[in-house]
Write a protein that binds this DNA or RNA. Structure first.
Length: 274
DNA sequence: ATTCTACCCTGCAAGC
DNA sequence: TGCTTGCAGGGTAGAA
């Protein structure tokens, strides 16, 4: 489900409801997510005030003085701020009760049909091991074409898989990898080590442009993604190649093709991308 | 070190 | 209508 723009959209949606607010209760209905939810979350979070809501890669961190809740949405995870008495659905695995404000009692609810997401605990001052060994954020100056070029030397894997490697750069998932490679005119099957420095400069610029634009549009909704207000993202209208196999390229009219790389569907224009 | 495969789980759409 | 199959914005573990 969510790539960086969808997670950032989620962060922006929930943060105003959470920052400065105290957590009153923790309900763990199904702790068996990707990894078991550590029980101490239920003991340590109640009474804590949420100081900040941070995104790192596709993870969200709810920071408190006692430690931080580390959340990942997996493929189908959704976070919403709801009235405390909102009916509980089959896949509503976690509720964090929030102290009442002018809008009444609320809960932050984590819903995840496939349970590929996780809720873990990070001790104060520590960095969770899942956050170690992550590459730079794509929307910062730490990420650029030279980084891609340097890291790709000698690598034989397809450039699309290289771009989706979280040790290279974080947040670029299956949709935006195809989109960025189309925008940069690079064949996704090409060996990462065979792409020139100049073309990586173009690719890095297109990654930044597309992710920033997608955040503005509230992310991409294919089927599951909704933001914390229950609304879909509208970037799907802007997709140039993803999901468009057999349809004409919006640039040259050639039929978009599909291939599987690393067990993920990949879309590209055989004329525009070399 | 890098690369490749299998796997985690549920829901939905397409095909028969 | 019902069954089967394949596919889905994620990432890790373990093997080669």
């Amino acid at each position: 489900m969510p790539e960086l723009p969808e997670v950032e959209t989620t962060r922006r949606g929930i943060a105003p409801h959470l920052i400065g607010r105290r957590i009153t209760s923790v309900v763990l209905r199904r702790p068996d997510l990707r990894w078991p939810i550590p029980p101490e979350i239920g003991e340590l979070l109640p009474g804590q005030r949420i100081e900040d809501v941070e995104r790192r890669a596709k993870y969200l961190l709810l920071h408190t003085a006692a430690g931080s809740a580390l959340l990942h949405l997996g493929m189908t995870g959704v976070l919403r701020v709801l009235p405390a008495d909102a009916p509980v659905g089959k896949h509503d695995h976690v509720d964090l009760g929030l102290e009442a404000a002018a809008t009444g009692a609320r809960v932050l609810r984590f819903t995840d049909a496939r349970r590929f997401g996780c809720l873990l605990w990070q001790a104060p001052g520590a960095t969770h091991e899942l956050l170690e060994n992550l590459g730079p954020e794509p929307l910062t100056d730490d990420f650029d074409g030279d980084l891609l070029w340097r890291m790709s030397r000698g690598r034989t894997a397809a450039v699309k898989l290289f771009l989706m490697d979280n040790a290279v750069v974080v947040g670029v998932g299956n949709i935006y990898a195809s989109e960025a490679l189309f925008a940069a005119g690079i064949d996704p099957r090409r060996a990462a080590g065979s792409v020139s420095r100049a073309r990586y400069a173009r690719l890095a610029a297109e990654v930044k442009r597309i992710l920033a634009w997608a955040i503005e549009r509230g992310g991409t909704t294919l089927r599951d993604f909704i933001n914390p207000d229950g609304m879909p993202g509208y970037f799907v209208r802007e997709l140039q190649v993803y999901g468009r196999e057999g349809e004409p390229c919006r640039t040259c009219g050639t039929a978009i093709r599909q291939v599987v790389l690393g067990q993920r569907s990949t879309f590209w224009c055989p004329r525009c991308q070399k």
